[in-house]
Design a protein around this nucleic acid. Structure first.
Lengths: 128, 128
DNA sequence: CAGTAAGTTTACGTTAACGTAAACGTTAAT
DNA sequence: ATTAACGTTTACGTTAACGTAAACTTACTG
């Protein structure tokens, strides 16, 4: 499970088509925690997973703060009852927004389908 | 089809739980086109539909520019072949990003489910 | 040993999407 | 007549998420 593969900052930048600036910024915001080899940042596969999560979050319109919240759910889990309860609440909330998004997407897909049909009908008339 | 219901800016603001400032801003950006009664803005049901669309877009992380693009799909459709082709392309692109978002949501929902299970397991151990 | 390729820090600039405040005009009620 | 509730325009302020640039180090490469 503990993948020992490491990555440089430019490797990750290339793979995910983002800038190194962005990656360093995510670190500033506490989303990534690369180790150092001298001055240089070394990223573990864990960081790569988190990066994926960040970008997935961005595609869904999440802020970096929200993605940081999601990343924290990957941690070895809080110690006491209260922390666990808080965690479950956070999870439940996220699940609700995801379900809302699912619903929104269905509506939009329907609207787009209708719009597409209108276009195709109008185009057909040109071809007569 | 032509609903004659009209709305004041504060009615819409209250209904959708946004500020009047935001609504005026959307007009500035060319997303809404209320008529005027003297100085005051009067919104038709069409505007209300567009407002819904804007907020739905926001929940999915769309920019106002993107939502404006979506609104334009509701128009009486472009005149010539080229415009129609452009329109269909835009629609196809949006459909792709929506499908990508659907995929992203499935993954996230799965991750959240696992995280929730870990939490519940940890909580069960407290109750023994 | 000069060059260049990849890394670093520091810092100011930029865009989107409003928030906030000032200063003012209607209309209705007290 | 004044206060309240709602509306208007104009304009500066704010936050997030980087972009861009400068100035520098480290490592290899011809």
């Amino acid at each position: 499970m503990s993948d020992a593969t490491t990555y440089t900052i430019s490797q990750l930048a290339k793979e995910f088509e983002i800038t190194t600036r962005a990656i360093r910024f995510y670190e500033d915001q506490g989303l990534l925690h690369p180790t150092r080899e001298g001055q240089k940042r070394i990223y573990l596969s864990k960081d790569r997973v988190f990066l994926k999560l960040i970008l997935r979050g961005k595609r869904l319109g999440f802020s970096l703060a929200e993605s940081r919240g999601l990343i924290e759910l990957y941690n070895p889990i809080g110690n006491n009852r209260v922390q666990l309860k808080t965690m479950v609440d956070k999870i439940t909330n996220k699940q609700k927004t995801l379900d809302q998004q699912l619903h929104d997407i269905q509506i939009m897909k329907n609207d787009l389908k209708k719009a597409e049909q209108r276009c195709r009908l109008a185009m057909d008339k040109f071809d007569t």
